[in-house]
Simulated scan of single mutants.
Amino acid sequence: MWKPERYAWLLSAALAVVATPVPAQAPAQAPVTTAVVDTGRSWLGFEVRTRFGQRMAGEFPRYDGVVEHLPDGRHRVRLRVATSEAVIPDRPRYTAWMRSQSFFDAIRHPWMEFVSEPYGPELLRDGGALRGRLSLRGVARDEELVVAPAACARPGLDCEILVAGSIERADYGMREWQFALADEVRLEVRVRLHEATP
């Protein structure tokens, strides 16, 4: 025979569980910018070779970047580079061609961006592979750069961080002039940092 009083305790317990507030989860920690690229003391360059052995070296005079400290102790770098201001010194015709639709297509894609994968802070000291996502001409691809071992205990602050690598033009839709230009574009970065203002 059903006797409600026998199950009153069960009903009370169920109501207590429902009424107990669920502890709010702590909000995820956002990355903190710890350092900013010192654009006055850094240098970003590129090099393309012709099929005839000629070397065309250029520079990116305008860029900005930050180093983020992630909650797990690793770092991540974000770098934006203005392809619209890429220049081959003393070669105005080559500079115009480099910014044109045939190469960087700077009118439609004035910036390229590199966002690294998280890395341990020892990478900048000891050197090694810096992997990340490069966005250029509307195409995003995983690329790998190489960081040289540092010459000081605080890379970027007390000495330069040297980074080098290369990309393939065809991977980013730069397929014109294949008969005259090598597909490889070499990149070189010399970075100095200053600590971010709180």
Rank of each mutant, 00 (worst) to 15 (best):
S84I: 06
V185R: 05
P71F: 02
V139G: 03
M112F: 05
R62F: 11
H109M: 02
S116A: 05
A96M: 11
A26R: 07
E144Y: 07
T33N: 02
D72F: 04
R49S: 08
G127F: 00
K3D: 10
V87S: 10
A13R: 09
P118Q: 01
Y94D: 15
I88W: 06
V36R: 04
V32G: 00
G120Y: 06
A86H: 07
A140D: 04
R49W: 04
L79N: 03
A16G: 08
R169V: 07
L193Q: 06
P155S: 11
V37N: 00
A26V: 07
L145Q: 03
R192M: 11
V139A: 08
T20I: 13
V191L: 13
S100G: 10
W111M: 14
V22F: 08
P89T: 09
W43N: 13
E47V: 08
G120W: 11
D126I: 01
R131L: 01
G132H: 03
T50G: 06
L11P: 02
V87P: 08
A14H: 03
I88S: 07
E5Y: 14
I167E: 09
Q54V: 15
V48M: 06
Y119W: 08
R78E: 12
L124R: 00
L124Q: 01
D64V: 10
F179M: 15
R91P: 05
R74I: 01
D72M: 07
V147N: 09
A96E: 13
A35W: 03
F60S: 04
H69W: 10
Y119S: 00
V87R: 13
A19I: 04
A140T: 14
C159V: 11
S166I: 05
E176V: 10
V77H: 00
A150I: 09
V115T: 13
L181I: 08
E144T: 15
V147P: 08
W177C: 13
M1D: 11
F52R: 14
F103P: 02
V87M: 11
L145K: 03
R154F: 13
I161K: 08
L70F: 02
L187T: 10
P89W: 08
P92H: 07
A140R: 11
M56T: 13
V17R: 05
V18Y: 10
D126N: 07
W43G: 09
Q101W: 13
E113V: 15
D90N: 11
R62C: 05
R175N: 14
V146Y: 12
P110R: 02
A106N: 06
L181Y: 05
G73Y: 02
Q178A: 12
I167N: 05
R131K: 10
G156I: 08
R141F: 05
P121T: 01
W111N: 06
V17K: 07
H69Y: 09
E188I: 09
R125L: 03
A148R: 10
V32A: 08
P198S: 15
A170W: 12
A8M: 10
V37H: 01
R141C: 06
M174H: 04
R74A: 01
S135H: 02
K3M: 07
V36P: 01
E160N: 11
F46V: 02
W2N: 15
H109Q: 02
Q25F: 11
T39S: 09
P110F: 04
R192H: 11
P21W: 05
E144M: 12
W43Q: 15
D158R: 13
